[in-house]
Design a protein around this nucleic acid. Sequence first.
DNA 1: TATGAATGAGCGTTCATTCAT
DNA 2: TATGAATGAACGCTCATTCAT
Lengths: 194, 194, 194, 194
Amino acid sequence: MAKLQKSIDKRNALVKATIELVNNNGFHATPMSKIAKMANVSPATIYLYFENKQDLVNQTYIDVKAEYTNYAFADFDPNMPIEEGFEMIWKRIADFKLNECEHAMFLAQCDNTPMIDEESRQEGIKHLQPLLDLWERGKKEGVIKPLSDYILYAYAINPLSFLMMTQKRGSFTLDKAHLEEAYQSAWSSIKMCK
Amino acid sequence: MAKLQKSIDKRNALVKATIELVNNNGFHATPMSKIAKMANVSPATIYLYFENKQDLVNQTYIDVKAEYTNYAFADFDPNMPIEEGFEMIWKRIADFKLNECEHAMFLAQCDNTPMIDEESRQEGIKHLQPLLDLWERGKKEGVIKPLSDYILYAYAINPLSFLMMTQKRGSFTLDKAHLEEAYQSAWSSIKMCK
Amino acid sequence: MAKLQKSIDKRNALVKATIELVNNNGFHATPMSKIAKMANVSPATIYLYFENKQDLVNQTYIDVKAEYTNYAFADFDPNMPIEEGFEMIWKRIADFKLNECEHAMFLAQCDNTPMIDEESRQEGIKHLQPLLDLWERGKKEGVIKPLSDYILYAYAINPLSFLMMTQKRGSFTLDKAHLEEAYQSAWSSIKMCK
Amino acid sequence: MAKLQKSIDKRNALVKATIELVNNNGFHATPMSKIAKMANVSPATIYLYFENKQDLVNQTYIDVKAEYTNYAFADFDPNMPIEEGFEMIWKRIADFKLNECEHAMFLAQCDNTPMIDEESRQEGIKHLQPLLDLWERGKKEGVIKPLSDYILYAYAINPLSFLMMTQKRGSFTLDKAHLEEAYQSAWSSIKMCK
DNA sequence: TATGAATGAGCGTTCATTCAT
DNA sequence: TATGAATGAACGCTCATTCAT
């Protein structure tokens, strides 16, 4: 195997271990030594790939956030009709949050915790632009309520995080029917009432 | 001042310090010694009121959660009409989340982190019962969509947490008008469409 | 035993251990854990008395330097005749360097190494003033060569450090006769030639 | 360029880097990786030229010590008259200590620190023989005090180290006049009084 | 000969918790 | 009840050294 590939593999193993351990224990209860062990490297090796623990978690956050948005917009075409586009994005996000549950939980923890540098947080937000553009167009066309993007996100997207968390805790399982209901609620809350 | 009162004061000072420090630094980056210092007691004194750090944060969580629900249902009467009752509760919750921001943030961190014991989490949920009862009644009366409580909560209440977080980060400020819009979105997402 | 005394004892034990271990291994090859062990305390206890390793060694330096100058000037009276005063100080210094060899070696290592903060070094120098005053007077009276204090120190005092070091290494032992010779050389090098 | 030369260049670069870094940070605060970086080689390469860190610093010491004594005795002829010979050597040594300040400081640090192996220290001392021989002759001729070589060195030569250190710290600058004074003090302290 | 990636051991330091008072 | 001194265990991180290439 090429040397470069081996390096990438190691970096990925570290990122993966970080996600899993931080999910289960939280940032500060996750020692570097455990991350190293889970990634099958020496603790010192981590520092070949990351400056320090903060950098490791920042980079992990950015990686996961990028994966999340890539997934969300994979099939999306900016010229789609508003509702169709929104439904597509929403369902991809739902898919991600409910199937790539580990990654979604990691993001939730990062977003509700003083664990990530502000700079990395900003970096992570950028990728949502296509959704904001869609909403912009929707507002102009009179299909979407003329609300702040923050409010739209709060009602259209963020509830999925709550549902993901709830499901993860085992209190409740979202099936197909639930999902459709949830989508209807999301769309209800942002679509222009006729 | 009575001795008992002095004791309660100390306990409260510890809880208050915990909230503030955990908000700013996260659970594991908040040493007991700092909590003690901020509450003007010796580190050893904490252990007279709490079993250990985990117990301190668990109890703090339950305290804040109770305060939150007390606030939410203060003026609520279970016999109110559904929409009126919901609006009242929703607006009290909004008040709490946006004004008692520190406390709301603390809850958000607890709820998105493996920081609280499952038992204490369950304990904290109980107090929401009046809202669940209202929804139950609403569904029977055909005013509220017949959805799982989790989904209703996700769309009707949880978005406020996101908006609170956003506002706290300074990206965005919710004024009265925003709040009314948010309420309409919340209500739209759960009310039965005619 | 009083609490305060116990604290002072611990601090002193730490300073003592620092001197011995740094003498034998050098600053950076002396771990805090060994210092703690030799002083019969836990590593964490060191940090109750000193801010960090640098602070520990700085304070140790200042302590030893103070002890050194106190010893040197113990019997000295600023009104003594020049030669008599110089001889007294010189012999006290010689005594110190050859008998309190551990302490003298520690100072030598500190003075020839980037191990001590500049600030602490300055602090340590202050105490030599009585000797400089004596030289000043000696120059005015035409008994001491009108040289810079640095040169006077280099020839009158510093050679004792070299001899102490040599003796410590076992190459050579200074007896009474040697000491008298050394004193004559010291005096010869700074006294005004007739 | 011949391969051998390239090798010698690398070794020299390593020795040079060692001197500079150890001067500024001390032996143990100087990582091999930094030495490698400053010498523009890989850390692993150091181990082609030196057994380990201790060997590197030992060899560096011997190199510098040899340079020092070569410089000291460059123009010296064992048949010179005593005083003339001593003055020549002394002034060459002074030149070295004050101009090749970096190298002289390195020696001072090595000589006052448990940083060099005893064996290497002995190796370094050997080269001083011509000066000891001169003194031997001086004593026989009744020109030099019949003192132990250690005492002679302590008064005649070692003060220059102190002056070099002082100058390096910036407290004081030796000009030509100072130097002549210092030489007179040196000579006074070891010459036979008439 | 030369490398850079890799590492185990060990460092300085912190902290939740205890204990004598 | 209240304390502050004390601590063992564990943390993040560094570094001399090795090894596959």
